[in-house]
Design a protein around this nucleic acid. Sequence first.
DNA 1: TTGTAATTTTGTAACGATAACAAATTTGTA
DNA 2: TACAAATTTGTTATCGTTACAAAATTACAA
Lengths: 145, 145
Amino acid sequence: MQEEQPIVDIALHLKNHGIRPSMQRMAIMEYLMGTSTHPSVDVIYSHLLPKMPTLSRTTIYNTLELFREKGAIRVLNLDNKITRYDGKTTEHAHFVCRRCGRIYDVEIPDEIYEQLNKLPDHLVEQTDVNYTGVCAECLGPNVIR
Amino acid sequence: MQEEQPIVDIALHLKNHGIRPSMQRMAIMEYLMGTSTHPSVDVIYSHLLPKMPTLSRTTIYNTLELFREKGAIRVLNLDNKITRYDGKTTEHAHFVCRRCGRIYDVEIPDEIYEQLNKLPDHLVEQTDVNYTGVCAECLGPNVIR
DNA sequence: TTGTAATTTTGTAACGATAACAAATTTGTA
DNA sequence: TACAAATTTGTTATCGTTACAAAATTACAA
């Protein structure tokens, strides 16, 4: 429940990415940066609607596309059904638990990314590492598999 | 243009994965194994229709889902728009060229996969490595970037 | 401050890939 | 041959996303 990130920082964060801040944009970015649940458009919408009753889904789509263009977020392609968004832009991998459905951040050593990115003759701009399996919590002793 | 894979082998290949062979299933698997273009359902449909005029898209969806369940193919989630399918089940990565749109297989050393799969407390069942960037051909000296 | 253009937001409608479903066809086996 | 199971097919429905234009807001010049 990490809330209350200073508004000014969010605005500055957007400006640093060449994005003019607006209430909607700040709200969306604030939510993305304050959660690690990799929410979908619908989850973002449901979360913000109580505080911004006039918010439109289209605005969220537009805003996320803008964020992506400017490199302010990462877009996750994990199941070809729902697009999820990640406010954390530093390099990390994702683990999809097929039991609980959650998506966890996984830190991978820089050396491995360096090795991965050594692709002769190619210009590598992004490297996505996605795991599928069963997470630690679901593997716990009290859980029936 | 690698065609003419012996039908008997395709049937055997399916049986080895617990899949009862049928004309449609063999045609789909034969196409998947004979190409490295990672085709979508529509591409598969267009390719097979001339030889199988009664073929239905639904059959392709059903068949690919069956193949996936049985572990006979890999499903690629690369852009959240179109699902692509890969007949090659041995471990390898994928490179998406943002210029030509092609998807190339990339071989990654086993050691790297071993390192990647060392996730404490997790049961890793699949590891996907997806690159985005510009491919060797598009980086060639005669191509304007 | 006022007017105007540019930007942003919004709601509706359209799109398209996929899934649900039931009927029709084919296959396996008694 | 007969019948049940499996497979294929066409139609319809679903739902995430995009297109589009109008409305609202903001930035800036006079």
